[in-house]
Design a protein around this nucleic acid. Structure first.
Lengths: 244, 244
DNA sequence: ACCTGAACACCGTTCAAGT
DNA sequence: ACCTGAACACCGTTCAAGT
């Protein structure tokens, strides 16, 4: 079904030699930022696994190797994409109520990680942050904990625990994680039956719930457990010191 | 530097044609299990990213395409590897004490996920379990919760929360996750200084702790928070029903 | 300073041809 | 039933040659 266009008539016999070097026509739009943005576009359009130097370059109308003038490697490009997506997180202003503030931060993180194509989330969640850029979310989370009287060391543990939970939950939500439940009732039905068939008594008993999964509610369940536990522990600590 | 070997004298003019088909010599050791095991060997020796159909086949002394007689695709091979690693988890016997049992299950999961090359962990943690095999860990965890009086639906939420936390923590530990801390003091030192330099007040204040990371202790901190919260919530629920 | 051609050493996968 | 050759459409990356 692919029709070859008719050959254009060559008016000038002086055929141009195979062109090399930077084409003079191009209004050199190539830059590190433009590359990262183009990569995000590829993710939005075709998913993470479609990201290649060639696919990104194609979107920029340039050869893949040209990217090496602005990035160090594909891996560093992936890091940059993760940073870009994370930088879009809207860090909420603190109210002074730890419960409310932690919940707001968690929701903002979830929105940022899952915004744009879900595939981008796996990048954000599975690569180490080593650039010290984008520390705003961390700073505000620490501020929330320490404003509520947390010791520095304890605050770091609490932040890491929260981040680990969110990473695990969102990775599951981005359709790449340990899970048995399904969003789609078309899938959940047969799966429930299969779980009952396993013969494992407890698995069979919880099959109706295990076969179904509401990502938003599941995220809330765990984050509430953690927040309540943090608040309770801080209250206990402040009571201890006041008693003396 | 590549020396071509001298051509062997051909005694028989009936030169064998380019051999095709299954070589009669091979004691056909190829099987799905053998392939999965060879893949795990590749991971242990060279890391996850070294796993390719060609590298696995090489270890088996066979052509890469031969694998397609036993596996459906590379992706299904990765699923099988994850299943194999998970199947090595030693599921602990329950004591009846929810705190103790949950902690034992969590530690066993951590050991299984991190056993062999760390790269295998990312496979186990980042692929959905869809084969209904290997449900033993899930069954025993549900048994622990429900033995302590948990409602089926709540037990499912609790299991998912715990698994999400462990996934996030272990992914960080398998050197692929959101983290700023380092195991190595050689790295932690300069990183602490860099964190202080950021100018972010709370980040700077917690820099000594944020720059350091003891994976085992960190895992324990979060899992204890969760377990205590679960136990407290179950106690409250049982008090509520008894009061009536 | 920045882009391309040629080249290299890889990938996963299909399919017909062999035993 | 199971393995290989040939082939295809991809990869990331280096480096010299061009502008």
């Amino acid at each position: 079904m692919t029709t070859t266009p008719p050959p254009r008539p060559r008016l000038r016999p002086t055929a141009a030699p195979a062109r090399r070097g930077r084409p003079p026509t191009g209004s050199s739009t190539l830059s590190r930022d433009a590359i990262v943005l183009a990569a995000v576009e590829v993710i939005d359009a075709e998913g993470v696994e479609a990201v290649s130097l060639r696919s990104v370059a194609r979107r920029l109308g340039v050869d893949a190797k040209a990217l090496y003038n602005h990035i160090e490697s594909k891996d560093s490009l992936l890091d940059a994409i993760a940073g870009e997506v994370l930088s879009r997180m809207v860090v909420p202003a603190l109210t002074g109520d730890l419960s409310i503030d932690l919940m707001a931060i968690a929701q903002a993180f979830r929105v940022a990680a899952l915004s744009s194509h879900r595939g981008a989330a796996t990048l954000v969640l599975s690569r180490p942050v080593e650039s010290l850029a984008n520390l705003a979310p961390l700073e505000v989370t620490l501020a929330a904990f320490m404003g509520a009287g947390a010791e520095p060391e304890w605050a770091v543990h609490a932040v890491r625990t929260t981040l680990a939970y969110m990473t695990g939950t969102l990775l599951r939500e981005a359709s790449a994680g340990l899970t048995l439940g399904a969003d789609d009732p078309e899938i959940a039905g047969p799966r429930e039956a299969a779980l009952v068939e396993t013969g494992l008594p407890h698995v069979a008993r919880v099959a109706p719930y295990l076969s179904r999964l509401d990502h938003a509610r599941e995220f809330d369940f765990g984050i509430k457990i953690l927040i309540d536990a943090f608040v309770a522990q801080l209250e206990r600590a402040s009571l201890d010191t006041r008693e003396r």
